[in-house]
């Protein structure tokens, strides 16, 4: 029992036990956020740095609140990803921050593998808050937590992940995680954004959203970025909407108690119809709420959770 990793870089290398221990810990953490005094002294004296090289409000503030509810001190750095030619290198930036003796660095970066690179020369615990198109482990964990909360299980559920799979770190982390927990994962999207190579990740690939919707338990919609259109991944938003928007009509094909998820921020009426996003089946705001509990659990397991058996 226990979580023995120094960093949280991704889901791919976590075991099923690791994942369950994070989810179970998060159950206990969720209770704290319901109290009048939403704070425990667990990480008193610990310093956590939020180092964000990409704009983010949701993930950054979620980590910030998580750290604060555990009484850790948190510093926020929002920087523009420095290119090779201008500005300080990532290595120098991180080494400077490390000189301030933090206990953990939470890093969000536009390049895949940046947190892995940082972990090769850092003393601090590194938490990946999203790297390029690679992984976003805490998002997948909070998604799993939400699914478990709503469906009481994950194994055997038919879970659709829909949209720009190719560029999505949320999709990758969810594929790894949901596979480990035994879900039936179906990816849906236009072929350029969902190349057939994804089948080798042990998931089903579909380009027919209507058909894929049948009997779905969970519909996880991904944000579609308009920039992709410029790179010829699909012809137009109008056509994308035609084929891959989650509409009321499509939703009806799923199981009646299917839940709708989205990592945010929403493009209303692009990947998801606005009435669907606001329907009773939507758990999008619960995802946000659960994000805090998951991130508290991750911080606790990495920074605080080690102790000898209490002697009395």
């Amino acid at each position: 029992m226990g979580f023995s990793h120094k960093h949280l870089l991704g889901i791919q290398h976590l075991s099923e036990d690791d994942i369950l221990s994070i989810l179970d810990t998060a159950e206990s953490m969720a209770e704290i956020s319901t109290r009048e005094v939403k704070k425990v002294p667990t990480l008193r004296g610990k310093t956590v740095i939020n180092l964000f090289f990409e704009p983010s409000t949701r993930t950054r503030s979620s980590f910030e609140l998580a750290a604060k509810r555990l009484s850790a001190d948190i510093l926020n750095f929002s920087l523009q990803a420095s290119s090779v030619t201008k500005g300080e290198s990532l290595r120098d930036t991180v080494l400077n921050l490390e000189a301030m003796n933090p206990d953990a660095i939470i890093i969000r970066h536009a390049y895949s593998g940046a947190p892995h690179f940082v972990s090769t020369f850092c003393r601090s615990h590194i938490i990946n808050a999203g790297d390029g198109s690679h992984e976003h482990p805490t998002q997948a964990l909070l998604d799993a937590f939400t699914i478990r909360q709503e469906k009481k299980k994950i194994k055997g559920l038919k879970i659709l992940i829909v949209g720009d799979i190719l560029h999505s770190r949320v999709a990758r982390s969810n594929i790894f995680l949901l596979n480990k927990l035994g879900a039936h994962v179906v990816l849906v999207g236009p072929p350029p954004l969902l190349p057939s190579i994804f089948t080798s990740l042990n998931v089903e690939v579909s380009h027919d959203f209507d058909k894929a919707c049948i009997d779905a338990d969970v519909l996880m919609m991904l944000r579609i970025q308009r920039e992709r259109q410029e790179k010829y991944f699909f012809p137009s938003i109008r056509e994308y909407r035609e084929l891959y928007t989650l509409s009321k009509k499509r939703l009806k094909k799923a199981k009646p108690d299917a839940i709708i998820m989205h990592p945010g921020p929403l493009n209303r009426d692009v990947e998801i119809a606005t009435d669907v996003a606001d329907s009773v089946q939507s758990v999008i705001l619960k995802q946000v709420e659960n994000g805090i509990a998951i991130r508290m659990a991750v911080l606790y397991l990495l920074l605080g959770g080690k102790s000898r058996e209490m002697s009395d």
Binding site: M1, G2, F3, S4, S21, D24, T25, S28, M29, I32, V40, P41, T42, L70, A297, Y300, L301, G304, G305, K306, S307, R308, E309, M310
Partner: peptide, 15 residues
Amino acid sequence: LYRDDFSELEAQHMV
């Protein structure tokens, strides 16, 4: 979460 012996390394304590 209220224990005072967190930094004493050993097996993890499940919350």
